[in-house]
């Protein structure tokens, strides 16, 4: 049976992971490759590297980071943050990214989804949707959550699928950073509207939040950053908890 995936997100700035990390036994706690190796040992299923600055100046550092991580671990690697053009995506793929994640650029230029799907295959194209509750629907925001995109998350996910996206990375702006749990209702609404996998993000606080998002939230994968970085829980312990609750995982 297909396992539910646990994905760790590395927020990277100038080649260093920027959220606080205090793992023991790491020579350099901010080094993405070293962190990737640690997660790989703990059986993380996938990694996302997010370029949180995403300026022209940081591009070269980003390619070096991708190369270093892809050299260390042999699991799927997605890259996001500031991928605006086909050339940006090509640079990430050439450096070793298996998937690129489009957010603002997908809204601003939807044909880019199709262009990249045709060039690299749908499996290489993630459309990231940042959304928050608004009256009776889920409003999509772009530019790191600062600007309303005037569209609904469920509708946009369907359109992204039709344009060739292979996966949806759905982040709840309401829950992000709160540790109050994933927005299971929103995740289920999007997951049941598309046939491609949906990765839930935003709000992971405890082990049971993951159980919820895989059951009530109908998520195919769940992504978290700080819960793993701060070593509040290990990936391995999380997976054992999920397995104990009847959720298929890779252990």
């Amino acid at each position: 049976m297909l396992s539910k995936r646990i994905i760790a997100c590395l927020d990277v700035r100038n080649g260093q992971v920027v959220k606080g990390i205090n793992f023991e036994g790491l020579r350099n706690a901010g080094d993405p490759a070293e962190l990737a190796r640690r997660y790989n040992r703990e059986l993380i299923d996938e990694l996302v590297i997010l370029d949180v600055t995403a300026t022209i100046e940081t591009r070269r550092a980003m390619a070096d980071t991708i190369r270093a991580v892809a050299h260390e671990v042999f699991i799927p690697l997605a890259v996001g943050g500031g991928i605006r053009t086909e050339d940006d995506a090509a640079a990430a793929v050439e450096a070793g990214a298996d998937k690129v994640s489009l957010n603002t650029a997908a809204i601003a230029n939807p044909p880019l989804i199709t262009t990249l799907a045709n060039r690299y295959g749908s499996q290489a194209v993630i459309v990231a949707i940042d959304a928050k509750r608004s009256d009776d629907h889920y409003a999509v925001y772009v530019r790191s959550g600062s600007a309303a995109a005037e569209c609904d998350a469920v509708e946009w996910a369907r359109e992204a699928e039709a344009r060739g996206a292979g996966e949806i990375l759905l982040t709840s702006i309401d829950r992000d950073g709160t540790k109050a749990g994933f927005d299971c209702q929103m995740t289920a609404a999007v997951s049941r509207a598309v046939s491609i996998p949906v990765i839930a993000s935003g709000g992971a606080g405890g082990l049971d939040d993951f159980v919820d998002v895989f059951t009530r939230g109908a998520a195919d994968a769940a992504l978290a950053a700080s819960i793993f970085h701060y070593a509040e829980t290990s990936v391995h312990a999380l997976k054992e908890h999920l397995r104990a609750h009847g959720i298929p995982v890779r252990l």
Binding site: M1, L2, S3, K4, R5, S122, Q123, Q185, A218, A219
Partner: peptide, 20 residues
């Protein structure tokens, strides 16, 4: 329904992820 376990949801295609 919304309360169903993940395994009872519609089968997703493409098949993406780790399997035995």
């Amino acid at each position: 329904s919304a309360d169903d376990a993940g395994s009872r949801d519609a089968l997703k295609v493409p098949h993406v992820g780790w399997n035995s």
